[in-house]
Design a protein around this nucleic acid. Structure first.
Lengths: 213, 213, 213, 213
DNA sequence: TATGAATGAGTTTTCATTCAT
DNA sequence: TATGAATGAAAACTCATTCAT
């Protein structure tokens, strides 16, 4: 059914997509108004439903579009990723932040949606997220250099520990950022990273070979 | 104004509270229908608003009720908490799981609400959450025995690493639990805990003194 | 049915009446809230309806009470009323203003009600107003000295012309007063009266004998 | 937003307008029920709000429509207005009565609204009324022939006296008409006008040159 | 006599979706 | 293909009145 939409002129498509992203990001799925969308997109009510069938399908299309768009940023620089485990993960964390700052609206849409899926979209959204992971996780987590890990440590588990920690840690700062402002976070970035490395030192001690040997 | 509600017969009160928790947990604040609530609670439209004034105040009451109810589970067993850092945190994680399994609906309500506060309730909810932390965090995180931490590790950061990791790790399993069923998690609990301890071993290595010395 | 109310202690009665007048004057019959009344009167909801039967009957009682109260001000000074037609009417106009300033809330209630009767009270209210006129009009309009009227003028009609004019003229100033404030009117009273007498001069010319003959 | 409504087929528009006027005239702004309106207009709930946005905007539209409609009756015959002051005012009084009898419901709506403006509409309504006066008053009160006024009478005040009197006098008869029926007034019109002219004779005596000079 | 909790029909407004054109 | 007017169920909330106590 979307093929009708896909065969639209590119600029018209883009205008519609942008209007949807803005509306969904600002208000969430439930409170988003299809009226606002058609108004900002400059199309008729009927057209929107002709293209997408329902608000639900529209949202899924937009969500998928946004994920793919954001993932392209990751894909584009994938050859620059460091090999060392902790450096790799840190690199991705910084990348995540950069993408967030470059596409704040889309990012908000993704984050808000994932952390709080509307019940009626749950199944489809989780499928998409799973699919996204299946596509990009191997790339992001592949070929990690764990040769510096100390003897006896399970490498997969070690990587996951780091990963879980970093996620949790950044999550804390993003929460604060939401309350304050993203700019405040950026200005404080040096301090945040200093702190961050101190935490990592402790983690490293448990996972890496002692450096001086 | 709630005193009218408070002086209701206990079973009537409970029926209303249960109906509210169920509706709010299932649909969130926005989509929750006061119509559905009064129907399930077996009271009239007017009664609900006579008791609580507005949907907003109703929700805040129910949220507060749920937090206090859940926190009682923690308070009841507070004297049994282990002193050692990792054991303490693990103990609380298990406790958290138990409470989650005992009160899944209430727990869902709390978690969903905290991770995604409706804008118009934000201020009040954050106050409540802050108050709750102020009351219970000292109890939960107080008197932690960190004498086994190795020389040179910053103790506050070390505790936080453990805490962040455990949160992230359990979060993963809770997500799975939501998809499958809580029973599936329980049945698999032994395996999960085995896994869990293996992760902790790695963390411990970086934080604790080497045990055999 | 009102005898229950009438046999209440005077201060309790008064408190109830005052609360009603305030509420009805402030919001009109429709928007007046019986809840607000019982709250301010310090009585129970049931009591109000026990005393008065319905909101409608309550209002009629209060309206009647107010009219009688206001009319007492007129009755008290009835012996001081001038005899001459124009002076009499002017005197009453001033009296009306004084009463208005002494009992602004009650007056507002009466004026608002009379100029815009709620349909379901129309019949009863008009009866009351008619009754009031029957009682007080003869007093106010009786024994008017029309000996100064010029030959050939119908005396009843002449009095009515003056009366209609004064009513219309004061109405104009009351309208302005409502928009500005009563104080503004009072402060401007001298000017207003100067104007007023100039108008009256013209009227007088048509009705009275020429003074200098 | 009203352009949607304006482009409706004339008969449908009229049916909606009529339903609104009837409901608002019968019950006033506050008590008027949009439910009743849509039922009598034979349209859906949504349609009404699609056309007008809100009850408030609907009322303002209807009020404005009614004023313009009534004013057209005046405008149509404006070239027939007599020049002499009293005759002009009398002529307009008769015209007013005719219009009132031709459009009793609309007239009731206008009169009721103007004499008792709902607080939340006050500003907008007063603007409309002011605008109406600005448009029609010059036409109605312009070019009045006051050359017959006697020496020494202030002409502006004299005209206003007549105007105030006529307003007050007709007001009396309209009040009666509301209680009885408009037909009763019409049947009695000759007597009423006879009376009226007798009153005017007295007024004239004070304002006009004596006729026999 | 007096209470006040409880009722439920009523209010205005919203909005995804449809369908005749 | 595209339009946008029309739908109507649903939303939160109010309030005069009743009635068991």
């Amino acid at each position: 059914m979307n093929q009708v939409f896909e065969s639209l002129p590119q600029d018209k498509k883009q205008k519609i997509i942008d209007a949807c992203i803005a509306e969904f990001a600002a208000n969430g799925y439930d409170r988003a108004s299809t009226n606002a969308i058609v108004q900002n997109a400059g199309i008729s009510k009927g057209a929107l439903f002709y293209y997408f069938g329902s608000k639900k399908d529209l949202f899924l299309y937009i969500f998928n579009y946004s994920i793919e768009k954001l993932m392209k940023y990751y894909y584009k620089v994938k050859d620059m990723q460091p090999a060392d485990a902790i450096e790799r993960l840190t690199w991705y964390t910084k990348l995540k932040l950069k993408v967030f700052l470059k596409e704040p609206v889309m990012s908000k849409l993704i984050v808000d949606t994932v952390t709080n899926m509307p019940e009626e979209l749950r199944v489809e959204l989780e499928d998409m997220v799973r699919g996204m992971y299946a596509t990009y996780l191997p790339m992001m987590m592949g070929n990690i250099d764990d040769s510096n890990f100390r003897e006896g440590v399970d490498k997969k588990r070690a990587v996951e520990i780091i990963s879980i920690f970093i996620d949790g840690y950044t999550e804390k700062y993003l929460k604060a950022a939401r309350k304050l402002s993203y700019e405040a976070v950026i200005n404080d970035l040096d301090n945040i990273m200093d702190e961050y490395y101190k935490y990592l030192e402790i983690l490293k001690y448990g996972i890496y070979k002692s450096p001086q040997t």
